[in-house]
């Protein structure tokens, strides 16, 4: 076993004892018991596993643990909690923007990155930012509406 890896997750310093090529997704879900990021494809194609690394959206299923050593990772849990929701989470609830909900954490994280760089995106910009995120339930238009609501309600 190689040396443990140190990183920041949701503002907390953590040390993980896992092989350096372990996908970040498995570290988040299994070592840190964080449910937000989901396994969808493991191939970087669907976006269900999206988290922020130093503020940038990355697909944690194809990101090695070693690549985030010393860096700061934010998951859905890091945005807000059930009692203290982030504006995006509040907007997704208000719009009931989920059917099965499996794709939603990735959508919210991508939207967070979008709003951080572009606080008032047009609808087409939201759709383009989410173009590589798949949803099978057909919740797309509600997801867009939720992001727009988060922009509006701030």
């Amino acid at each position: 076993m190689t040396a443990p890896t140190k990183l920041q997750v949701n503002g907390r310093a953590v040390t993980v004892a896992a092989e350096p090529d372990t996908p970040l997704l498995y570290v988040l879900r299994n070592d840190l018991a964080l449910n937000g990021a989901k396994f969808g494809c493991g191939l970087g194609q669907c976006g269900a596993c999206t988290v922020l690394v130093d503020g940038q959206p990355v697909r944690s299923c194809v990101t090695d643990l070693s690549a985030v050593a010393g860096r700061s990772v934010t998951t859905l849990e890091g945005l807000g909690t059930a009692d203290n929701l982030h504006k995006l989470q509040r907007a997704f609830i208000a719009e009931q923007a989920a059917q099965c909900g499996y794709c939603i954490p990735g959508m919210i994280m991508e939207a967070k990155a979008l709003l951080d760089r572009m606080p008032e995106p047009a609808e087409a910009e939201i759709r383009n930012a989410l173009a590589d995120h798949l949803c099978r339930c057909g919740t797309h238009n509600r997801i867009v509406a939720a992001v727009q609501r988060a922009v509006r309600e701030g």
Binding site: N35, G36, T75, T81, A82, Q96, G101, P105
Partner: peptide, 15 residues
């Protein structure tokens, strides 16, 4: 089920 689904609550079998 939606609040848990947007906050990372344990709700799926994988959780």
């Amino acid at each position: 089920d939606i609040p848990a689904k947007v906050t990372g609550g344990a709700i799926y079998v994988q959780d």
